[in-house]
């Protein structure tokens, strides 16, 4: 079996809203696929369908060689799920959480306990293992959540926005953990809103928007398509916008985005600081005054701007791109009052 995940023509409707509009995905064994998109793009819906939590309206879904729609029980034995759609029980200790999950995977009493201790050690939770998860930091909870997904050594791992809401340090720790898993040969599908995260973790990236795939490729291919880095420049006067746009067009990859109101130009480039230097030189030659200029890595917004011509924010807020109820940027679970 060469493919661990394969979907074709996946459709999911919520009333009149198309959450997934014919999504095709293929993930080879041992590969990490990054599903990149803004809130409401359909990432979580896709993960929920692949992990048997949700029935698609149309389309075929295969995980670990099994038909998800007809053999959900067998699929559940082979997958692990972590992230915003699954949670740890905050009243249980870290050990109790993992032990419970092991028992429910039917590993047996002894093996479940061994595995729980093993994973606590591996995820740097050994000391906190006998404290209730309520006392854990956000990063510790996410690690425990990921550990829970790994209890039965699943063939396919689904990580739904594994770092959303984490502080920068915890995010980097989580990235290292996921990279270790990938090196160990796990097949992973992860969803993210961050280009940087997809770039760092994924072998392949699928960009989705309104339930459809709008781009696909390795991180390098995508970056070439949209430009690896972005030059962003704000001009002193609006009259200079068009001449400056012409200058930038000669240096960049793809199209130059123009924001007339902010007097801002944005474009992808491949040459880094050298290109920036040349751009400034040519502006100076043309007597164009610059208020602000910078070079930065592409964000999800940049990816969207160059692929769709609209920003990721507009998608989430537009009336027909309704944001998914479960796709919130921060973890609201922690705010739930305890009865």
């Amino acid at each position: 079996m060469t493919h661990m995940i394969r979907t074709s023509g996946l459709v999911k409707r919520y009333g009149n809203v198309l959450a997934l509009d014919g999504l095709d995905l293929v993930v080879p064994k041992g590969a990490v696929l990054g599903l990149l998109g803004p809130n409401g793009a359909g990432k979580t819906t896709a993960v929920r369908i692949l992990t048997t939590l949700l029935e698609p309206d149309e389309g075929a879904v295969e995980v670990a060689g099994l038909n998800v729609r007809s053999e959900p029980d067998k699929v559940r034995e082979r997958i692990g799920l972590s992230g915003q759609t699954a949670a740890v029980d905050e009243h249980l200790t870290g050990f109790e959480n993992l032990d419970m999950v092991g028992r429910l995977y039917h590993l047996g009493r002894k093996r479940s306990r061994e595995r729980a201790r093993e994973l606590l050690g591996r995820f740097d939770l050994a000391e906190a293992g006998d404290r209730s998860a309520k006392t854990y930091s956000g990063g510790m909870r996410r690690r425990l959540d990921l550990a829970a997904a790994l209890v039965a050594e699943p063939e396919v791992l689904f990580l739904d926005e594994p770092t959303t809401g984490l502080d920068p340090r915890s995010r980097i720790q989580m990235w290292e953990t996921i990279q270790d898993l990938a090196r160990g040969g796990s097949t992973v599908l992860l969803t993210t809103q961050y280009m940087e995260e997809a770039d760092r973790l994924a072998d392949d990236i699928v960009v989705i928007d309104r339930g459809r795939k709008i781009a696909e490729g390795t991180p390098d291919e995508l970056k070439t398509q949209i430009g690896g880095e972005r030059i962003e420049s704000v001009l002193a006067t609006a009259a200079d916008l068009h001449p400056a746009q012409a200058i930038l067009a000669g240096l960049c990859v793809g199209e130059v985005q123009l924001d007339e109101q902010a007097r801002r130009l944005t474009a992808g480039v491949t040459g880094g600081a050298e290109v920036l230097k040349r751009f400034l030189q040519r502006l100076a030659d043309a007597n164009i005054a610059v208020v602000d200029v910078g070079l930065h890595r592409p964000t999800l917004d940049d990816v969207f701007l160059s692929l769709t011509g609209h920003s990721a924010e507009e998608v989430a807020e537009s009336p027909d791109g309704r944001s998914e109820p479960e796709a919130e940027p921060t973890d609201t679970r922690e705010k739930e009052a305890v009865r």
Binding site: V88, V101, E336
Partner: peptide, 11 residues
């Protein structure tokens, strides 16, 4: 709290 989702994804 999403705990039902965890359970529903288990065999």
């Amino acid at each position: 709290k999403g705990i039902i989702d965890r359970f529903r994804s288990l065999p």
